[in-house]
């Protein structure tokens, strides 16, 4: 899967959680919890959806690495090849 689609999946799943927010207008370096007004259950649903769609497991201890849009995409890009090979 290309980086393009990782980005698309992330944005799509964030939009599912915060349908009233225009994800394209969100500052890529902003704290997602603030920018999208999401709570811990929303974030868990996001992580669950990303795991399901990309096959990338995101351990709880890595949650802080997904705090912004750009960090989340970077994390998943870095993680995907290795994870993909393992599964």
């Amino acid at each position: 899967m290309s980086d393009q689609s990782i980005q698309a999946v992330v944005k799509e799943e964030l939009e599912n959680i915060a349908p009233d927010v225009d994800i394209e207008a969100v500052d890529p370096s902003a704290d997602l919890r603030e920018a999208l007004d999401i709570d811990s259950m929303d974030f868990l649903n996001f992580v669950t959806a990303v795991h399901r769609r990309l096959g990338v497991n995101i351990p709880e201890k890595d949650y802080p690495k997904l705090i912004t849009l750009e960090a989340a995409i970077q994390y998943l890009e870095a993680k995907r090849p290795g994870e993909g090979a393992k599964q």
Partner: peptide, 17 residues
């Protein structure tokens, strides 16, 4: 929670709530 969730996929993780 940290111990329990470390072994679980996201769909079965627990929250403090």
């Amino acid at each position: 929670l940290a111990r329990t969730n470390a072994e679980r996929p996201p769909e079965s993780r627990l929250l403090m709530g």
